[in-house]
Each structure stands twice: as structure tokens, then as C-alpha cells.
Design a protein around this nucleic acid. Structure first.
Lengths: 215, 215
DNA sequence: AACTCAATCAAACGTTCGTTTGACACAGTG
DNA sequence: CACTGTGTCAAACGAACGTTTGATTGAGTT
């Protein structure tokens, strides 16, 4: 899909990589980071590869050189993000805390949350060649967790654990997805650490209210 | 902002407007409808005015003629949508039902929900000249409603009614904002009437679980 | 019928955007 | 040192996009 040459580490005595004028891996990473920021900020259509090159401080052409164009670059950052995503929530965390952490991602990793949100709106159907399986599998853990709490009688049987998981996730992303609504209703800066923290706190509170914590 | 000439109705004996070859109001409406669909589908950056003209079946130039370009058109449909939005939920509806209706908007008015979602991600700050006041005011009604239930002891005092309102709204929009996640977790078509209905039902259930209904 | 203005369209235009080309320079290799 | 391949860049290119221009036609007015 994109240029995935791995630049075989031939250098016998590498002269402190940070001093090298030319370093494919470093350049690739600069581009990936810049692209993540740009795509997160403006979505796919709104992102400009000239802006990405600027942010990365490299020549615009290198994007085609390393990633085979805008589309390849987008898929590259998507893949990279999907890998990092897996390392987020340590399994076994109580659900209220889990949800809290997710809401706080708006502070720690705003780009990741925004990318997820953009991709939802840009999503056209399951025929996409993107691999959503890792995330699905990870979320399945949460669903199972809820099912256990349900089996333990802490939640009515009528509740669909999968739907509840979706609701919690959507609610946790609200500071990212609905800043304009928050601005209007709460009269605060939806991005401010104070509010995000407050909101995350409220979300855990509501989660507990639903009985979603270990007895 | 955009060309808002109102085409004074001079016609003394109007010859059945639907037969007229040239009708400014009809054309304007065709464009607005097409633009709503296009912007809802692809967001601002992704929308193409050529596509809008195609959908509307009119010459591309008429968009500049009537709305002073892409930006003017976008603001025009935003304003129109904001007006229609106010007529949605009849005041005094019990909260669980209110939330249910909102979730079902994904079926009745998918474009409106998507426009709201896009604008959230495209939102850059309160300096925007868009007028979000009507929605804020309407939602304030919901916040007050929750506050009353809280005063009646149906909800712990620690809960922030405004945050809870945001959570419910975000959750209600999930079938629109997180279709890819739903696809992966629930293994269903997130847009199918069956699922949207099921999800809306679940959302009312959870809302009731929180005690958010009249005693 | 002549006149006028609004509505519509086709074509051209200038920009922006992403990609391609071609040249150049650095760093290993023999 | 000459050679080679990779990394980098500047410039050009072509397509796509939004807008403007100028002409044409329908409809109401005198």
C-alpha cells in the first residue's frame, strides 16, 4: 500500500543517529507525526499535504516518496494509531475507572480521539479495507465485563451490554465530538483541563450509578 | 452573508408555480436540499459544489448567484437547519422518551444529525459567527428538567445536570458518530432501522435506570 | 411589440492541491 | 578515489475545484 521499505540497518558503527543529516526512519516518523496532527485537526478531505510537509519540516515530495501519496499516508497513520490504541487501557480495570480514563484521553491524546471521530463520519461501510478488528476485540472485553456484572445481578437483564458499551464510549468522547454544544450549554471551554476533568469525573459517577462496578 | 433577495411575489395570477420554467424560490430550495445532503455526507471540505449542482439538477453557477459561494451556502443550510431543529422535541416530554426520539433522528433525519456531528469536529472556537443560541436554549430546558428530578431526590446531588445532558446527547448520536465501532462490536448494520430502533430502546432503558423519569 | 430585469447556462479563468520529474548530495562500498 | 544507491529538494505538471464572465432566454411591464 504505502512504501514500507524497512531500511536494513547496515551501518556497522552508527554515528549517533540524531546527528545524521539523512535518516529515513527519522524522516518517516516526522511525517507520520505531522500527518497525525493534520488529519486529526481537519479530517481527510480537510488535511493538506503541504501543511503536513510544513509541520514535519520536510519537502512535500517525500510524502509521496515514503508513503505513496495522501491516501497511503492516511492508512499508515491509521494503522499506527490502531496499534498504539491497544496499549491504552490495562485489562481488569474497574469499568468506572476505565470510562474515566477514556474520557481523559481528550487531554492526553486528543489526536487519537479526533481521528476516531473523523473516521466514524467518513465511514462508508464494512467494505473498507481498514482493519477494525483489534479495537473490536478490545472492546469486546468491556462488553464481557458488563455481562459479568449483569450475571451478578448488578444490572437488569434487559440491558444489552454491547449497546451500553457504545453509549459509554460515545459519552466519553463528547468533549471532542460536541465542543460546540458544550460551549453553549455549560458556558465553559470544552477543551480546558478543568472541564475535561470535571466531565470525566461525572462520567464515572454516572457509570457507578448504573451499578457498573465490582460489588 | 449570502444572497438573500426575497423575490417579491409580484405575480398577479400565478400560473401554477410548479409549471414555471424559472422559479427562484424553487431553485433555491433545490440547491439547499442538495447542499444539505452533500454537506451531511462529506462535511464542508469534502463537499463538492459540482456534486451539489448535480444533485439539484441546476447549473453550478447558480450556487454563487443565489448563495454567494460555497461558504455562503453552508451558512445558509446551517441556519435553516437550526430553525428546523427547534421544532423537534415537544417540550414537557418525559426525558426517556425525549432521548429516545433523539436517537431515532438517525432514521428520520440523518442529515441533521450528521451536520451537527461534522460541525462539532470542524468547530474551532466560540469566535465563530454561527449562532448556537437557539439550540443551547432548547437544551437548557432539558438541563432544567434534570435539575428538577434531582431536586425531587431522584438523582444524587453530585451529578451535574448539564454534563448528564451532554452525555445523553452524545450517546443518542452514537449510531451516526460511531458506525464503525458499532459494526465491529455488535456485528450489525448500524444504520439499519432494526438496530437504530433497538439502540434507541436501550437508551431509554438506561435513562430510566438513572431515575430520569417523572415519579 | 418593444423593453427590462431576473433567471439560467456554458465556457473560461485563476487557484489550489497532490503528484511526478529530474537533478543533486550524502553515505556507504569496492 | 570512483561508484552506486538512497535520501532530499525545487520546479513543473495536470487535474480538480470554486468563482467569474458574458451571453441567452423566459417572464412581467408599458
Amino acid at each position: 500500500m504505502y512504501n514500507c521499505r524497512v531500511s536494513a540497518p547496515k551501518a556497522r558503527r552508527s554515528p549517533k543517529p540524531q546527528e545524521r543529516q539523512r535518516d529515513a526512519d527519522r524522516t518517516r516518523k516526522l511525517i507520520l507525526d505531522a500527518a497525525t496532527a493534520e488529519f486529526a485537526a481537519h479530517g481527510y478531505s480537510g488535511a493538506r499535504i503541504s501543511a503536513i510537509a510544513s509541520r514535519a519540516g520536510v519537502n512535500q515530495q517525500l510524502i509521496s516518496y515514503y508513503f505513496d501519496g495522501k491516501d497511503g499516508l492516511y492508512q499508515a497513520i491509521s494503522e499506527r494509531w490502531r496499534q498504539r490504541e491497544s496499549e491504552l487501557v490495562p485489562p481488569g480495570t474497574p469499568l468506572p475507572e476505565q470510562v474515566r480514563q477514556y474520557a481523559l484521553e481528550a487531554l492526553d491524546n486528543p489526536d487519537g480521539v479526533r481521528l476516531l471521530a473523523w473516521s466514524g463520519l467518513e465511514y462508508t461501510g464494512p467494505d473498507s479495507d481498514l482493519d477494525h478488528a483489534p479495537r473490536s476485540q478490545r472492546m469486546q472485553g468491556t462488553v464481557d465485563h458488563i455481562r459479568e456484572l449483569q450475571a451478578a445481578g448488578r444490572l437488569p437483564d434487559e440491558v444489552d451490554p454491547a449497546c451500553l458499551t457504545i453509549m459509554l464510549m460515545a459519552a466519553a468522547m463528547a468533549t471532542t465530538t460536541l465542543p460546540h454544544v458544550i460551549e453553549g450549554v455549560c458556558q465553559v471551554d470544552p477543551k480546558s483541563p478543568e472541564f475535561v476533568d470535571h466531565y470525566a469525573e461525572q462520567l464515572t459517577l454516572v457509570t457507578r450509578l448504573l451499578g457498573l462496578e465490582p460489588a
